[in-house]
Design a protein around this nucleic acid. Structure first.
Length: 473
RNA sequence: GUCAGGGUAGCUCAACGGUGGAGCGGAGUCUUCAUAAGGCUAUGGUUGAGGGUUCGAAUCCCUCCCCUGACACCA
């Protein structure tokens, strides 16, 4: 049985998820459901990046011990998957010293053996208030713009990763689509970044700067492995790397990493380079989505209070409606503005009046007749081709065109005026078969609705069901 | 500042050298099987601004304005 390994991004857990985060969960789950329809064995992984300094700062701010803080917020992120009805196979935490840390250290050692990790002195302007290095360009009159203090000129010994060594290899891999970056605009961005010339990047921090948090550098108790080297490795440790080699070898490489545009570079440049250094196979695809924003392209933010809570939206409209909205309204290669007005418009037009109403009217018409056993629907080749481009919105537009077509056919045939039951049966049989095909095609997008429709028409005698999507007034 | 993408009907977007299209919303109308749902029809646009090339430009070129992103060790 072919296997298909999907991941979503590994977020910081220093805040709460908002409605925009669900886009990625739905995309990843749609891919998983699609692969299952093809008969693949699937694994969907997410996790939490817990060894970042930002978490420590957030914990301090909330007055919680770091461990308690991480337990609390990791659970919130993990539970969000449950709220949106997406079943994760693995949620791998970065603070997991048993399963995660050995893998990070193992990857480090392999890169070190390849000669790609070396010690170098890093010089920079350090703002104590920010606990971060500042670039000249970020300073205002030579002072930190936030703390109004003069940053200290300090130098620190860090370990660096020889990213520069992989520049040409990465270009080749991406241009040949061996490492496939979707969509093309994000691929172009990655290529242009690499072609500007890659510099080695720092992969460790002193214990002091890391506040003692993180995976220790093997053989150097004074340094912690820095966040990207650590966080990205979750994609491997979550499936056994460093702990259960057999399981890891079975699932690795990832078939697709689903991520947001903000972390393009780390997934299309740093991560493949690290894997090349360790001589591991690369992920096959990186699928990069845009952001869901508030009205007018405004970023969702806590301080503006414009970021809807996923649970709130789902409690109000239902999980399938939100899932439909995200997959149908957000193109894979651009951002989208979410508003409740737009949401309700789409809900009524597509779900209540479109799909829901069609199913209801056909079901009602079927009460007079007896359906023959339906042929088993199959995914068409063009459907598969389309799906594998991950243009979810375009695919849904095609399905909705068929819904509309059936509505027109019904209008034309006027089945409610037909007394000849044989003729009526023939017409309805045909429509039900088409709807049954639509139900299959919708499975990755609207799994529950798909199931409800299939169940409704499977019996010879149709029993009416409550509306799939009650109209919003 | 540099590079990339974009600015088209009220809204979301498609056309990417040959008579400006679709969906949604709004209007009218037909219809009743259906969730006051559905069908049909009409309406709706000096295609960001200005200039140029061309028989012909939303589409190619130039200038300008506005938005979005990337430009690395903050993720």
């Amino acid at each position: 049985m072919p296997k298909f390994y999907i991941t979503t991004a590994i977020p910081y857990v220093n805040g709460r998820p908002h409605i925009g985060h669900t886009l990625e969960y739905f995309q990843a789950d749609a891919i998983k459901k699609y692969r299952q329809l093809l008969g693949d064995e699937t694994l969907l992984l997410s996790g939490a990046d817990e060894n970042a300094l930002k978490n420590v700062q957030a914990a301090e701010k909330e007055g919680l011990p770091i461990k308690e803080f991480l337990d609390k917020y990791s659970k919130i992120w993990k539970d969000t998957y449950g709220i949106v009805g997406v079943k994760l196979d693995v949620f791998q935490r970065g603070s997991d010293e048993e399963k995660h840390w050995p893998g990070v250290q193992k990857l480090w050692k392999l890169c070190e053996e390849s000669g790609d990790i070396y010690k170098k002195s890093y010089q920079g302007l350090y703002c104590v208030g920010c606990e971060a290095f500042k670039l000249e360009s970020e300073l205002v009159d030579g002072l930190c713009s936030i703390h109004r203090t003069k940053p200290e000129e300090i130098s620190e010994e860090n370990y660096f990763f020889r990213l520069s060594k992989y520049q040409e290899k990465l270009i080749k891999l991406i241009e040949s689509n061996t490492l496939q970056i979707i969509p093309s605009n994000k691929r172009a961005e990655a290529l242009s970044f690499i072609k500007q010339g890659l510099e080695d990047f720092s992969v460790s921090r002193s214990n002091e700067r890391a506040k003692g948090v993180g995976v220790p550098v093997p053989g150097d108790p004074n340094q912690k492995i820095y966040v990207w080297f650590d966080a990205l490795t979750i994609y491997m440790t979550g499936i056994g790397f460093g702990a259960d080699e057999k399981k890891w070898k079975y699932w690795w490489p990832a078939d697709v990493h689903v991520i947001g545009k903000d972390i393009n570079r780390f997934h299309t440049v740093y991560w493949p380079a690290m894997l090349l250094s360790a001589r591991f196979p690369l992920p096959k695809q990186i699928l990069i989505h845009g952001f869901v924003n508030a009205k007018g392209g405004e970023k969702f933010s806590k301080s503006l209070g414009n970021a809807p809570d996923p649970k709130e939206v789902i409690d109000k409209y239902g999980v399938e409606a939100v899932r439909y909205y995200m997959l149908a309204q957000v193109p894979i290669d651009s951002d989208h503005d979410f508003t409740y007005d737009r949401f309700e418009e789409v809900y009524n037009a597509d779900l209540a009046n479109g799909l829901g109403n069609l199913v209801a009217r056909v079901a009602k018409l079927c009460e007079k007749i007896k359906l023959n056993t339906l042929p088993k629907p199959k995914l068409s080749e063009s459907y598969k081709q389309k799906f594998e481009q991950y243009k979810f919105n375009e695919q849904l537009v095609e399905i909705w065109a068929r819904i509309s077509e059936i509505d027109r056919e019904i209008e034309k045939a006027k089945p409610w005026e037909i007394d000849d039951l044989n003729k009526l049966q023939g017409l309805l049989q045909n429509w039900v078969e088409e709807i049954n095909q639509i139900a299959l095609d919708l499975k990755p997008f609207l799994p529950n609705t798909s199931k409800k429709i299939q169940k409704l028409f499977v019996q010879p005698k149709i029993q009416p069901i409550p509306p799939l999507f009650p109209r919003i007034q």
